[in-house]
Simulated scan of single mutants.
Amino acid sequence: MDSVVPVTELLTAILAEQLLFVGEETVGHYFGEDWEFVYRNREYLLWGTVITIVLTLTSILVGFLAGFPAGAIEAYGSGYSQAFVRKFGVLLRGTPILVIMIFTYFVLPIEIVLGAAEFALRSIEFLLGPTPFTVPTDVPEAFLAATIALGLRSAAYQSQIFRGALGSIDEGQMEAARSIGMSRLETIRHVMVPQALRRSVPGFQNEFTIVLKDTSIAFAIGLGELLKRSHDLFTQQTTAVLEVILFISLLYFVLTFGTNRTLDYVSNRFAIPGESS
């Protein structure tokens, strides 16, 4: 019961200030100096949350752009291409993400990667016309290295999600589409892929959550994401370690919970009629 009183008084203070601002002194008075320290640095931690979100999105995008073609090659390819994709995927899935990230940051020449990305983008624009995308040149190397590491590792897992989704579609649909004059490539593109994308949402949801939490590994290369910024704070005030950890745990929970609920909606919204989501 004693713990209920400070919470009630704090809510009263919030209402008294019209829910617009809670002073540091108010937090310190009801919860102590360490929570006041966390509250005072809330913007610093929230900016780390923004970096975590952006890193998650860019890594998932890289994973999708590389993982979906890889899954299609494993499902429908043959020969050297299938063998290469399969072995490379096994290598990435069997290597700890920390090792991959350290390799991309300290060993991989980022300039060459950016040059290759710019060449690929220009090739796409030459074939398909202008695109709204540009290759970033002023992004910190730590962020690029983390994106590449998380993206490649995610691609290795996403490829298996998409391979399984493609393999779950009845082969009779391929035969039916071929019987009405569609080529194999047209059948894969217009018949198999749309169904596979819908069926892969539950697996993709799990992978999205894993990548979100794995962004904390970027702490090892000094990227100022949420975990790195929390470490910076509790080294300044060591008595606030528990409070900082509890606060960032709450932020991670909000992010993962919001992501899961959003993807649950997407799964239900785009589920194949007649199939359970």
Rank of each mutant, 00 (worst) to 15 (best):
W47E: 10
L57K: 04
L11I: 07
L246I: 06
E9L: 12
L150S: 01
L166W: 13
I110H: 07
T147F: 01
A165H: 09
I60G: 00
P96G: 05
N41V: 01
Q173I: 15
G129I: 06
T259D: 05
I169W: 13
E111M: 09
V99R: 05
Y157H: 07
T52W: 04
L10F: 06
L92A: 09
E24W: 08
A220I: 08
L91Y: 14
Y105M: 05
S216R: 09
L223H: 00
P96Y: 01
L19S: 08
D2Q: 07
I272Y: 11
S267I: 00
G258D: 13
V113K: 00
E24I: 05
Q173R: 15
P140F: 00
R178M: 11
L15G: 12
V244D: 02
F21I: 10
V5P: 02
N268G: 09
L61S: 10
R189T: 15
L55G: 03
L246Q: 07
S81P: 07
P136N: 01
R229W: 03
D2L: 09
E175A: 14
E171G: 15
L226Y: 04
F68I: 14
D232V: 05
I169R: 11
Y76T: 14
I100T: 13
V54Y: 05
P132H: 08
G28N: 02
N268F: 07
W47Q: 12
G172W: 10
S159M: 14
F143M: 02
R199H: 12
L250W: 07
V191C: 12
F31D: 06
E118D: 14
I248M: 03
A156E: 03
E275M: 10
Y157I: 04
L114W: 03
Q82H: 14
L55C: 06
V90S: 13
E225S: 01
M101F: 00
A16D: 12
Q158Y: 06
L128T: 14
E118W: 08
T256V: 14
I14Q: 03
L11Q: 10
R122P: 04
S249R: 12
V244A: 03
L19N: 08
L20M: 12
L152V: 11
S168F: 12
L242S: 07
V4C: 04
P136H: 02
L144K: 04
F84N: 07
F162A: 09
Q205A: 15
L91A: 14
E225K: 05
L166F: 15
I210N: 04
Q158H: 08
D2Y: 06
Q82F: 11
F234L: 02
A196Q: 10
A116P: 05
V191K: 11
G151H: 02
H190S: 15
L121H: 01
R122V: 03
S179T: 13
Q18D: 15
